[in-house]
């Protein structure tokens, strides 16, 4: 039987969404993780809790508030309308923004842990060798914290692929625009088309397992190769 044209559309949309979100989250999440790892500010606990919130919040709650914020009367909606972009709900970019919030902790926390484990010393060493802040980041922090960044990217991607509740709240069910794989499976089940649901659900199961397996293998390898700084 295989995948239908709509299935392929959903799969490519899901991949495009997850890739876009992962790239944007690496860009946005890295400075947040850096700040959380190194700041001694008293706001650190508050920001850390906000970043971690999607871990415990029901996706429908997060989706509900984001829907309001991005709607014509919400702050984000008024901003996008003022910029001539229209409103974001029920569009691909609305999903991107919602997913960024939803997957944020999965990207921020591995990077934050890696930077914390790195400690101050290598960064100070690089500073005494005349490396400026950007130079230090790219030549010392990034290579030494690489396992953290790889883990962050894999988790961010996989978590976005597996998202459902937020998408339903924000994106609805528009083929090619917001109908991702998880929503497509839901539709099949709703119409009692279990055979088609099986194909997609099985593919998701295999994909998720493969991602997690590669992540665990990678972690095992990099922890064997890990060397304590100066050790």
């Amino acid at each position: 039987m295989g995948f239908t044209a709509e299935d392929w559309m959903a799969i490519s949309l899901t991949a495009r969404l997850a890739l876009t979100v992962t790239l944007l989250l690496l860009l946005i999440g890295t400075p947040i993780a850096w700040w959380l790892a190194r700041s001694r500010s008293r706001w650190k606990g508050l920001i850390g809790a906000i970043v971690a919130l999607p871990l415990v919040l029901p996706p429908s709650v997060l989706g509900f508030y984001l829907l309001l914020a991005m709607g014509p009367n919400g702050p984000i909606g008024q901003l996008t309308e003022a910029l001539g972009l229209g409103t974001l709900p029920f569009t691909f970019w609305g999903l991107v923004i919602a997913s960024i919030f939803y997957s944020m902790p999965f990207v921020v926390q591995p990077i934050q842990n890696a930077i914390e484990a790195l400690g101050e010393r290598p960064i100070e060493v690089a500073a005494t060798l005349r490396a400026g802040p950007w130079d230090r980041f790219f030549t010392v922090v990034l290579p030494l914290a690489r396992p953290g960044f790889v883990t962050a990217a894999i988790l961010g991607f996989a978590h976005t692929v597996g998202e459902f509740g937020v998408i339903l709240m924000i994106g609805g069910n528009i083929p090619g625009e917001t109908r991702v794989v998880s929503v497509q499976i839901y539709d099949y089940v709703e119409t009692l088309d279990y055979a088609r649901a099986h194909w997609l659900a099985g593919a998701m199961l295999l994909f998720s397992f493969a991602v997690l397996l590669s992540l665990y293998l990678f972690r095992q390898r990099s922890s064997r190769a890990a060397i304590d700084f100066g050790g």
Partner: peptide, 20 residues
């Protein structure tokens, strides 16, 4: 003047070579 603009060399107590 931040550290990276000071013309100094620094040898730390424990070996501080970049492991990578």
């Amino acid at each position: 003047l931040p550290t990276h603009e000071r013309p100094l060399g620094y040898v730390f107590q424990e070996a501080s070579l970049f492991p990578h």
